[in-house]
């Protein structure tokens, strides 16, 4: 790891980051102690979980369903509170 640390020579000029959205490589799921579980059959696809997610962790999957990306979800619980159909619940990380 120490070897891969940036040096004066290989740091980009002025520390400019030339890779847009490189934060996607960073896992914010580790912030979480509870995770949201979406019960698909209750979901009306209103999209409010997607709208209100501070972390952009809710996405529309290939089947057109909303899904939480646990790599980024910090477990704030807003989606659970705001889901009109109570289709999302928080469970402890250990629970499956």
């Amino acid at each position: 790891m120490a070897d891969s640390k940036p040096t004066v020579k290989n740091l980009p000029i002025a520390g400019i980051i030339f890779t847009p959205g490189s934060a996607k490589e960073y896992n914010t799921g580790s912030f979480r102690s509870q995770k949201p579980i979406l019960e698909a059959k209750l979901c009306t696809k209103c999209g409010m979980c997607w709208v209100y997610c501070p972390d952009g962790a809710v996405f529309v999957n290939s089947e057109g369903m909303y899904e939480v990306d646990l790599k980024y979800c910090k477990g704030c619980g807003i989606c659970v509170e705001e889901c009109a159909r109570k289709a999302i619940k928080m469970v402890d990380e250990e629970e499956m």
Partner: peptide
């Protein structure tokens, strides 16, 4: 993009 380090529930991020 996701991967930002705002606190849980940060309204600024929304």
């Amino acid at each position: 993009t996701p991967g930002h380090r705002a606190c849980q529930g940060c309204a600024e991020a929304i």
